[in-house]
Design a protein around this nucleic acid. Structure first.
Lengths: 208, 208
DNA sequence: ATATTTATTTACCAATCGGTATATAAATAA
DNA sequence: TTATTTATATACCGATTGGTAAATAAATAT
């Protein structure tokens, strides 16, 4: 704050030889792959190239690190959701969401499946707070979809007798199922076929 | 074998004060709730009322116990699948499968969600064999559904240009998503609404 | 040069992990 | 009664868990 005008600020102590952002990226891969409890601090030290005291100094404990990683995940990897919500109609928003999700969930450059689902679907009671946190994230997505469908009703591209929350839950159920499929090895083509069948639902078929 | 004609067989050593079946039932609840890695042997000893050496003597190690529990789960809790497959048409089989699954996944008397999905969706590399085992179980269910749809085609209640495996994967995706929903606290009514939307798909709508 | 600040490395902590050796208790066979 | 068999309970094993204290290294400020 006080020195923000100076571009080159000389820091006092020994310089850290890690980049916080790339460290979080590497932590993300590990948590995404093995889940919160399936990931050990030992694995993280190896993946980040940092020893434990450095990790704790930089990011806090395991829970705090996971939360920072979760932030990074939502900020950098789930932007396609907001993008899909900007589609002109509800049907297009759903199709955009699911088809982009299918690409994302099977991306060969990242772990397969959705971290918010597989990060802690079940866990020991020690990690129940993390499980609850991820459930909150999912509920949040449900709200996002619901609001978009409410908007669609006022715009007239979704029947007024359609329950927005039920539709949101249907789409989310598909997404979560697709995530399980992707984690189990399903291909993009296979998920796309699932979407094609899902999009033939009566509310949406006529609007594609 | 040699003494099967005699009803009262006197066993030699100290009698075990546990019933193997009820012990497996209790182990099932724990594994179902917390997943394979989220369950500790300490938790099992408490739940079964048996100390570790007795558990190991009776069921083998943690993996072996989990497999026995898995057997019990499939034999006693997933019989509704075969029942649904016996419905006269594909659409009825799908609806029967999903609606019975919804009841099962939200049964207040058992843990919510499907153990074959949440038992080890992700895990440490130590438990990769268990994860693979559960994926096999899911693939098996996919085959069951696919075969049922092939049969429906020959019976004429499913169009011949319908890809049976794709349809199976669609239904399974819904089931897996519903399981995630149930684990996250969704109610039977909410899952039923999801099924209603899913069943409005073109292939099935006309046949309900 | 010396002090101060910050990050690293090494070594360690108590607790828990899955698993087992040993001793004891409770039944039957002799 | 004594031996044998089987299951129990206690106590322990090395390895790993998440987390930290203490020592050291590398920078800047004085």
């Amino acid at each position: 704050m006080e020195n923000s005008s100076q571009t080159a600020i000389k820091k006092r102590g020994r310089p850290s030889h890690f980049d916080a952002n790339t460290a979080l990226e590497q932590a993300l891969i590990v948590f995404w792959t093995y889940g919160y409890e399936g990931t050990s601090m030992a694995e993280l030290t190896e993946a980040l190239g940092m020893n434990k005291p450095s990790i704790y100094a930089a990011f806090g404990n395991k829970q705090a690190l996971f939360k920072k990683v979760l932030d990074k995940y939502t900020n950098e990897f789930t932007t396609f959701v907001a993008e899909a919500m900007r589609e002109p109609t509800a049907a297009q928003a759903i199709h955009g969401f699911l088809s982009q999700a299918a690409v994302f969930l099977t991306n060969p450059k990242t772990p397969h499946g959705c971290m918010i689902i597989q990060g802690a679907l079940t866990c020991s009671s020690d990690a129940s707070a993390i499980k609850a946190l991820l459930i909150d994230y999912r509920k949040n997505l449900e709200r996002t979809l619901t609001l978009r469908f409410e908007q669609a009703k006022t715009q007239g591209d979704l029947p007024n007798d359609c329950n927005s929350q039920d539709l949101a839950r249907y789409v989310l159920t598909l997404h979560q199922g697709m995530s399980v499929q992707a984690t189990s090895g399903a291909s993009l083509a296979e998920l796309t076929a699932v979407i094609d069948l899902a999009m033939s639902a009566s509310y949406l078929r006529s609007m594609r």
